[in-house]
Design a protein around this nucleic acid. Structure first.
Lengths: 358, 358
DNA sequence: TGACTTTAAGTGCACGTGCACGAAAAAGCA
DNA sequence: TGCTTTTTCGTGCACGTGCACTTAAAGTCA
């Protein structure tokens, strides 16, 4: 019942606390036979280190650098940050200091700069959303040289020095969208996928979604035509409308529109009432404009990427690895939540308040 | 940057640590003017109690009694327990001792007995799945008398002494099922809801689901007929089949079947191949037989009640309230996850491994 | 054998808080 | 004023671990 301590072990093994300490923490300088004796006793008694006392004694902070898009530059990125805060509130007693290195989501140079700054700050680890594929891989090399591991969220990249990835399986995310469309599509109707933003070739999480979407129809409804387009000047409403008009003209049988990211609302706000009625829409992310459109019945499904949990788990993994020294999984896929008008309220972050510790 | 401690405040306020301690913890015996001075300084400096040192000093365990159905008596109840274990692994350093009081889900007397035992064990709080409505309310009275608050999960009951409820909004859960059916229903087709198990009048979480389902169709498709039945001898395959045959005969236009709980598989395993093809099925809970049926396309949608999170959050709330002394929300609705074949893999608990701390 | 080095083991303090105990100051009272 | 009672405040130890420092023992070599 009572928690067993180092002192207990020392008493039973007839040695001093210091010796037990050396054994437990593998500091050496202890006779082999005594070491085995102590380990045996510790195991038998089920000794578990008291992390509170440990953390108190160490009195040293672990540093985590977080390199994510500026929450102000993109609505979505508020949410992972919320998750960071939650977990940090919960874990702050372990002595974790984080430094944020925000960058503008659309500015590759800022990303490069902030990644450099993050590495320069000599943290114990870097938590990064590697939205720019090539540049991220480059920095991974650099970090590897100075022995700083990466925790990645949101965008999955393949690299040996990534401690773990937390986010969605993008391919299956697109695949799921295919299934959801097919619930309502009639034969002959076409599907169009739109990527508003980053260049697809440098953004693996977006292109994987497209691949998944196409894969679904190839497998189940090979007659359904799927096309895709990318467009990065979505902030210019006039150009965006022109772009969309072009698509409408090119695809008179278009019935379903898939958005690879959170920016469905950018086009929906430019649609005519008639257009709004005509299409099945699937988009991503529970940001305010999308939620509104979902509730109005304009967006049919939102696929939620659990951004808050992405942040939450990122911190948890840091704690697990660096403080509790536990094994962690390299790939941690979060659920592909299907959000409709009828359950959207229960996905809003206010429901996570119990995890808010501040 | 540096963490500010009681000692710092004492030095600045020119008093002793003890005095600051008395102010911070509201122990009285301190002159009013000094109290305000100390509070002011504490606030200015942003003092935050170090809970690790605090817990270490107190060296007292908080006791939590958990009264939930035996995981062996019902597959579903393994999952909340997993959530308990996760959170406890994460929080164990706060010194939490839990005692489980399992009862057979179908045995009201066992529930009564274990609730009694739980109260007798004099815990700081009881975490309970109050699946029997009337009996639960009775014990709430008793616990109130000896000042033991309740944390409830899974089944929502109205009572002033419930510290918090963590689980689904059952009404909207049924309502969502209505929407999901309507994605595929043709005019004239009927919906039947089946409650295999508890008496509905004593199980509010089940009856609320039915109400939600009916409400959806009343509001959106008033022509669609919705009927419901309950049947508690579902373990007897022959009787169950008879029961179902009766329903098939009574409802030749039945196209959609809604199960209020996890026991859809009980009837599906008795269906003929032709019957299996004929109906849209919605059920609850990610237990093994249901997952299999979902993957085979027999069950169309599973609504996930986040059982692991129910357990996880239950513990988190205990910590928040009793250790960190934070305000907690009385009602904490978990998402109504829509699970289909295409995203089921990402809802399996293996994906939550990072929360496993043992 | 004696002086010195290396290795093994023990001791004491620190971390920040809670709490019991006792000292000091203030208040009450004759 | 002198005494007692009450209030207010300070001090020391404990919690379990980490770590630096000290001491003791064993080993090395001329």
């Amino acid at each position: 019942m009572k928690k067993i301590t180092i002192k207990d072990i020392a008493r039973i093994a007839d040695v001093s606390r210091g010796t037990v300490d050396r054994v437990i923490n593998n500091r050496g300088s202890v006779a082999p036979e005594i070491k085995t004796r102590i380990l045996k006793i510790a195991k038998e008694l089920g000794y578990e280190k008291n992390y509170m006392a440990s953390a108190l004694a160490i009195n040293k902070v672990s540093k985590l650098a977080i390199v994510c898009p500026d929450p102000l530059s993109d609505l979505f990125w508020r949410l992972p940050r919320e998750g960071f805060q939650m977990a940090l509130g919960l874990m702050k007693h372990y002595g974790i200091v984080v430094e944020y290195f925000d960058f503008n989501l659309y500015n590759k140079d800022e990303f490069i700069m902030q990644m450099g700054n993050a590495i320069k700050s000599k943290p114990d680890a870097i938590l990064v959303a590697p939205v720019f594929l090539n540049e991220s891989k480059e920095f991974l090399q650099q970090a590897q040289a100075v022995n700083i591991p990466f925790i990645t969220i949101n965008t999955e990249i393949q690299h040996s020095d990534v401690l773990c990835y937390i986010g969605q399986d993008s391919f299956h995310s697109g695949y799921l969208a295919g299934r959801l469309f097919s619930l309502q599509l009639q034969p002959g109707e076409e599907v169009v996928a739109l990527n508003l933003g980053h260049n697809l070739s440098n953004a693996p999480h977006y292109s994987a979604k497209l691949a998944g979407l196409e894969s679904y129809f190839k497998k189940h409804e090979n007659h359904t035509k799927v096309s895709w387009y990318e467009f990065d000047q979505f902030l210019d409403k006039q150009k965006l409308r022109q772009f969309f008009t072009g698509i409408v003209e090119k695809h008179p049988r278009m019935k379903a529109i898939f958005f690879t990211n959170s920016r469905a609302y950018r086009i929906l706000e430019l649609m005519t009432p008639k257009e709004l009625e005509s299409y099945h829409i699937i988009g991503y992310d529970m940001i305010e404009p999308n939620i509104k459109l979902l509730k109005e019945g304009r967006i049919n499904f939102i696929i939620n990427q659990n951004p808050i949990q992405q942040g939450y788990m990122g911190i948890i993994n840091f704690v697990n690895h660096f403080i509790l020294k536990k094994e962690i999984n390299e790939t941690q896929y979060l659920p592909l939540d299907i959000v409709v008008k009828e359950n959207v309220d229960f996905y809003l972050d206010k429901n996570l308040s119990p995890l808010h510790f501040n």
